[in-house]
Design a protein around this nucleic acid. Structure first.
Length: 456
RNA sequence: GGCCGGGUAGCCAAGUGGUAAGGCAGAGGACUGCAAAUCCUUUAUCCGCGGGUUCGAUUCCCGCCCCGGCCUCCA
C-alpha cells in the first residue's frame, strides 16, 4: 500500500522492514484525566491501519505506551490529595475501559513509563557519552544543536525555532531549545534514583526508550496525533538517533486533530467532550463512521449534527443486515469481488477510508436493490462482502439484541395486531405498534409479515 | 514572524490534466390501510479570487484573500 510519511512529506509505497511483519508504535495517553473525543480519533486511526495491514496478510506487532509519570499527573495528584501513582492508575483504568468500548484491538504490548526508567537512564547516559546531553544541577538536558538532523520530521530549522523564541530561557540550559531528559525531583515529588540524583524522566525520552526496546531500531511505523509532531516526535528521533546513530522509525503517521468551534479539542483549551458521553449518546460504530468519513490526515470539526447524520447513515447498514437476515448467499457473481477490489484500491491509497466507506454504502444500496427485486441470494452475497469489509474498518455491527425473555410477548402482540389488521381494525393495530415503539420495539411491515427489532 | 495543511453542491466529504465518489438534507415517483424501511429518478455548467503553462486545469505554476494546526502541555 501507499502511505504518507511525515518524514518524507510524500505518499510512499509501504514495505515493512521484515517481510510479512510490521512493528507499529503509537503514542498513548498521559493518564491525568478522562479520555475525550480527540483521543478516540488518535486510537481509531492506527486501529484501522493495523486491521487493514493484518487483513492483507501482514503480522502487526502493536505497541502503545502509557505515560504514567509526568508533571500534570503530579499536579493532579496534588489537587486531589493523593499519590501520583494512584491518579495514573485511576485514569489509566478509565482510559482502558472507554477505549475498549470503541471496539479497538488491544495493543500487544502496553508499556508504562514508570516500568522503564532504567532503560531511559541508560539511554540518557549514552547520550551524555556521545556528547548530545549534559547534566545541569540535578537535571539532564538534550543539546539540540548537537544533533544535525534536528527538525527533519517537522520541517523546521533550529534557527526557525530560535526566531519563534517562545521557549522558556532556563539558565541551566546551554541553549533555550534544549529540552529535559531528566528532571530533578522537588521535595515530595515521586522520584527514581539516577546517576544525577533523584528525579524523574522527561516526557520525550520514554517513547524513544520503549519503542526501541520492544520494536528495535528502524521499526516500521510510529503513529500519533499531529499535535505531537513537534516537539514530541522530533525529540524522540533526536534522542534515539543521536544515541544509536541508526534510524529510529521508518514511517511517521500523524492523524489530523479533532477541532471544536474552530479550535482543537483539548484539555488545556477546556472544550472537551468526553469519550464516555459520546459513546453513550451515539454508539462506538457511529463514532467510528463519523471519523472515517474524513481522511485520517484532515482535521475534523466536531459537530453533534454530523454525529446524528452519521447515525442515520449507520442505521441503513443495520436495516440492510436485518432485511437480508440469514439467507444463504448465491454462488458467485462479480459484485462482491468488484467491491473488494475497489475497497483495496481505496485503502491502498494512503488509507482512504472515505472511499472505502463509499464501497460499503454502494454494497448496501445494491443489496437493497436486489432485495427489492426479490433476488435474496444475491443480496446475501453482498451482505457477505459488506460484513467482511466493515470488519476490516473495525465496525462491530452489533445487530439489535432481541431479548429472548420478551420475544414471545412481542410475537404474541404482533399476532394480535395481524388479526386486527385482517379485520381492518387499524386503530387497534396502530395502537399496538405505538405501544411497542414506546417500549423500544420497532415494528416494520414487510411483504413477508411484520419484522421487529429493539431500538431505533 | 517562521513552518505545515486546507478552501469542492444546502451541510459533511472524496477525487482527477480531458470534464466531479459517498453520506446527510431536499424534490418527484413506486410500494404501503397508515407508518417505517426500501427501490427508481432528481439536486455542483462547476471545484476561494486573479494571472500563467497546456489542445484542454477544479486538478500543475505564480500572486492574492480567507481558515486551521504547530512553534508552550496536548492524541
Amino acid at each position: 500500500m501507499r502511505l504518507y510519511n511525515t518524514l518524507t512529506r510524500t505518499v510512499d509505497e509501504f514495505s515493512p522492514r521484515e517481510p510479512g511483519q510490521v512493528g507499529m508504535y503509537v503514542c498513548g495517553p498521559t493518564v491525568q484525566d478522562v479520555p475525550h473525543l480527540g483521543h478516540a480519533r488518535a486510537v481509531i486511526v492506527p486501529d484501522v491501519l493495523r486491521r487493514y495491514l493484518e487483513w492483507t496478510g501482514l503480522e502487526v506487532l502493536h505497541v502503545r505506551n502509557v505515560t504514567d509519570i509526568e508533571d500534570k499527573i503530579i499536579a493532579r495528584a496534588e489537587a486531589e490529595g493523593r499519590m501520583a501513582a494512584a491518579v495514573a492508575d485511576h485514569y489509566g483504568r478509565v482510559y482502558d475501559e472507554q477505549i475498549a468500548r470503541l471496539g479497538v484491538l488491544p495493543p500487544h504490548i502496553v508499556p508504562r513509563a514508570t516500568g522503564h526508567v532504567l532503560e531511559m537512564i541508560e539511554l540518557i547516559e549514552r547520550l551524555i557519552e556521545v556528547g548530545s546531553a549534559y547534566p545541569a544541577g540535578g537535571d539532564v538536558y538534550f543539546a539540540v544543536r548537537s544533533f544535525p538532523g534536528y527538525g527533519k520530521l517537522s520541517g523546521r530549522s533550529v534557527d526557525d525555532l530560535r526566531a519563534g523564541a517562545r521557549v522558556d530561557p532556563d539558565e541551566r540550559k546551554r541553549d533555550p531549545l534544549d529540552f529535559a531528559l531528566w528532571k530533578a525531583a522537588k521535595p515530595g515529588e515521586p522520584s527514581w534514583r539516577s546517576p544525577w540524583g533523584p528525579g524523574r524522566p522527561g516526557w520525550h525520552i520514554e517513547c524513544s526508550a520503549m519503542a526501541v526496546k520492544y520494536l528495535g531500531d528502524g521499526f516500521d511505523i510510529h503513529a500519533g496525533g499531529l499535535d505531537l509532531q513537534f516537539p514530541h516526535h522530533e525529540n524522540e528521533i533526536a534522542q534515539l538517533e543521536a544515541a544509536s546513530g541508526r534510524q529510529f522509525a521508518r514511517w511517521w503517521v500523524h492523524n489530523g486533530l479533532l477541532n471544536i468551534g474552530a479550535e482543537k479539542m483539548s484539555k488545556s483549551v477546556g472544550n472537551i467532550i468526553t469519550l464516555a458521553e459520546a459513546i453513550d449518546g451515539h454508539g462506538a460504530d457511529v463514532l467510528r463512521l463519523y471519523y472515517l468519513q474524513a481522511h485520517y490526515r484532515s482535521p475534523v470539526e466536531f459537530s453533534e449534527e454530523r454525529l446524528v447524520e452519521a447515525g442515520t447513515a449507520y442505521a441503513r447498514w443495520l436495516a440492510f443486515l436485518r432485511a437480508v437476515g440469514d439467507i444463504e448467499p448465491s454462488a458467485a457473481g462479480s459484485e462482491p469481488d468488484d467491491a473488494r477490489r475497489r475497497f483495496v484500491a481505496a485503502m491502498d491509497d494512503d488509507l482512504s477510508t472515505p472511499q472505502a466507506l463509499a464501497v460499503l454504502f454502494d454494497l448496501v444500496s445494491a443489496g437493497n436493490a436486489h432485495l427489492a427485486a426479490g433476488r435474496r441470494a444475491e443480496a446475501a452475497a453482498l451482505r457477505g462482502a459488506f460484513t467482511e469489509l466493515a470488519a476490516v474498518l473495525g465496525f462491530g455491527l452489533e445487530r439489535s439484541e432481541r431479548p429472548t425473555s420478551v420475544a414471545p410477548l412481542v410475537e404474541l402482540l404482533l399476532e394480535l395486531r395481524e388479526q386486527a389488521r385482517a379485520r381492518r381494525d387499524f386503530a387497534a393495530a396502530d395502537a399496538i405498534r405505538e405501544r411497542l415503539a414506546a417500549a423500544g420495539v420497532v415494528v416494520e411491515d414487510t411483504s413477508e409479515g411484520a419484522r421487529w427489532h429493539v431500538g431505533g
